[in-house]
């Protein structure tokens, strides 16, 4: 059993609890356990694209430094911090890259971290859980653990922007990724490819320019539905919230819009691996996936063993 220092980030503790709990459950099953690091702080969610603002780079470095200490307490743990949220992944990765290249920035940040008794020595790597699943665990092992193949679920992967951009933080090819596709297939679900797999959902504009998000979500969902998808799979809590919540808002306004549920990739894994349904926290979803899963016989029947 390998243990990984796991950085949750803000949303996994609030409206994406299902993402975290399912991830931890499947990580144990796959012998790549995610162990939450102590006293973490928000990574800042978006990386600053400015070249002169060091303040906005301190939080991710503090996370890396604390995770480094956490690694020491774990079993067989590599010097890696694992994230589930794709925004955390990109923020941490970019800043980690920057300080590895630029000693001057690192010194300035370390000076700021003195008060917290932290020093970062650029000896950590940031990994997204999908990278661990692909490179360390392997799809073969994942399919071996599947007891409840997701037959009838036609899943369209939606990457969003932060898993594939920028160059320094991408987990797969930015124009032709296949990590979510292979995962979905190894769980026994049908794969539906949509050309809008990285068509930005509007992200943080949800706060003050909701019209942008609703127009983006409409296009994303329509493209997937037109190709026969009955579910979307995502890795970002903000994509999930935007697509889920906007679909509900649209269903109220427009006739004939049948919403499709949005899953985190770990939720699909948990269902396929026969984990209890309650860890999915489906009650937090705006579009409840349970009716679809029941209709397909994927939940709500006795475990076939």
């Amino acid at each position: 059993m390998v243990q990984y220092s796991y950085f949750p980030g803000c949303n996994l503790k609030t409206n994406a609890k299902g993402f975290e709990e399912t991830a931890i459950a499947v990580s144990k099953k796959l012998e790549a356990e995610l162990v939450e690091m102590p006293s973490w702080n928000c990574c800042g969610t978006v990386h600053t694209l400015t070249s002169d603002n060091i303040m906005k780079r301190i939080a991710p470095i503090r996370v890396l430094s604390r995770s480094r200490k956490h690694v020491e307490t774990l079993k067989e743990s590599p010097n890696q911090v694992v994230t589930l949220c794709s925004m955390c992944n990109s923020t941490l990765k970019i800043v980690n890259n920057e300080v590895k290249k630029d000693q001057e920035i690192l010194d300035k940040i370390n000076y700021q971290l003195e008060e917290d008794e932290e020093t970062y020595e650029t000896d950590m790597e940031v990994k997204h859980f999908l990278e661990i699943l692909r490179d360390i665990v392997g799809y073969e092992k994942i399919s071996e653990e599947v007891v409840n193949p997701l037959k009838g679920l036609k899943v369209s992967p939606y990457y969003g922007c932060m898993l594939l951009h920028p160059e320094e933080a991408k987990i797969d090819d930015e124009e032709m990724p296949d990590v979510l596709e292979s995962l979905v297939e190894s769980l026994g679900a049908d794969l539906v490819m949509s050309p809008l797999f990285k068509f930005c959902c509007g992200s943080y504009h949800i706060v003050d320019q909701e019209y942008i998000v609703s127009s983006q979500v409409e296009k994303i969902v329509e493209a997937a539905k037109r190709r026969g998808a009955n579910a979307l799979v995502v890795a970002c809590p903000l994509c999930a919230y935007n697509i889920d919540q906007q679909q509900k808002a649209m269903a109220k306004n427009t006739v004939g819009k049948s919403p499709i549920p949005v899953f985190y990739f770990t939720q699909l894994m948990a269902i396929a691996m026969g984990e209890p349904v309650k860890i999915n926290h489906f009650q937090d979803h705006f579009i409840n996936p349970e009716p679809l899963l029941k209709e397909l016989g994927l939940i709500g029947r006795k475990k076939a063993k």
Binding site: N11, C42, V46, K56, C85, S203, V207, D208, Y241
Partner: peptide, 10 residues
């Protein structure tokens, strides 16, 4: 969600 608020304010 806090992820939207934090990123928006930043």
């Amino acid at each position: 969600p806090n992820i939207a608020l934090v990123s928006n304010f930043r």
